[in-house]
């Protein structure tokens, strides 16, 4: 499978990337290429211009930003997984980056590319949503900060507008009373999630006081399990609250699972995620 023809330019700075991006109506940014190139090989995507931002070394970093950790959009999954700052302060991000694809994918794929792709079956969007992360989007007018809750707008759709690029991801530092878990079920070892659940919990006296629960591949975007979160906040036991996790979702039926099975999985994996988050 060979992509349709396209022009190719290499950006030498984020500003240059935006300038090139604006030069063609259907230009696309190329980072690691592990979402875009497969789509182009299938000719689902046929951009006329690829702007290669993969060489912008200054956009690959993990930095201490006070109450947050800031991650450059071009940081590869492998480097996110191995970043000591994330392992210490927000381990759900480094853990999940290590669960993406396989080593070869993690050597090329980037956190920004994965998030900006907006695939409801990919792992990092749910983690961003559960963390209430902030996504920094840059355009010709400057930068704006988009909360994760407003970022994922549809299947392969995000708040990143034409002529804009995601430049940084800001995640909160988690305190000692905060537990976390990301539990995923896949059909094959390196597959996309059939369903996965991200959980961030506030613990108090050995139980969960509040929880943020985000669901992968349970609809057109990553979703918060609001009904279950509210039940937990009002003191409902975890097992009962977990039964509410699928509420309001409309998961797809595809080769990997029926919608019915996904509804079942969301509850079971959610229960496991909450139990694990309580202990970790």
């Amino acid at each position: 499978m060979i992509p349709a023809g396209f022009d190719y330019e290499v950006a030498d700075s984020p500003a240059h990337a935006l300038e090139l991006l604006g030069s063609s109506a259907d230009a696309k940014l190329l980072a690691g290429g592990h979402s875009l190139l497969p789509a182009m090989k299938l000719r689902v995507a046929r951009p006329s211009l690829l702007v290669d931002i993969g060489r912008l070394a200054e956009s690959s970093y993990v930095r201490d930003a006070g109450v947050q950790v800031a991650i450059g959009a071009l940081t590869r999954h492998k480097d996110v997984r191995d970043a000591p700052l994330l392992r210490e302060h927000c381990p759900i991000v480094s853990f999940t980056a290590g669960e993406i694809g396989d080593p070869q994918v993690r050597h090329r794929g980037t956190i920004g590319g994965s998030i900006a792709h907006g695939d409801p079956a990919s792992d990092l969007p749910s983690v961003m949503l559960a963390l209430d992360a902030e996504l920094v989007v840059r355009g010709s007018e400057g930068e704006r900060i988009v909360p994760a809750r407003e970022f994922f707008t549809g299947v392969f759709q995000t708040a990143v507008g034409a002529g804009e690029m995601l430049v940084e991801i800001r995640v909160p530092k988690l305190g000692a009373s905060t537990g976390w878990s990301y539990v995923k079920m896949t059909r094959r070892a390196q597959d996309w999630a059939t369903v996965a659940v991200a959980a961030i919990v506030e613990r108090s006296n050995g139980s969960i006081e509040r929880a943020a629960i985000a669901l992968t591949n349970m609809g057109g975007t990553t979703l918060r399990a609001t009904a279950a979160e509210e039940a937990i906040a009002s003191g409902t036991p975890i097992d009962e609250a977990a039964a509410l996790i699928p509420e309001g979702t409309e998961p797809p039926s595809d080769y990997a699972a029926s919608a019915e099975f996904r509804l079942h999985l969301a509850e079971v994996l959610g229960k496991r995620a909450l139990a694990e988050a309580l202990e970790r």
């Binding site: 290429g33 190139l37 290669d52 090329r108």
Partner: peptide, 10 residues
């Protein structure tokens, strides 16, 4: 790296 998912120019 999987060389079917990388452009030669990259």
């Amino acid at each position: 790296v999987k060389s079917c998912t990388m452009l030669g120019v990259q």
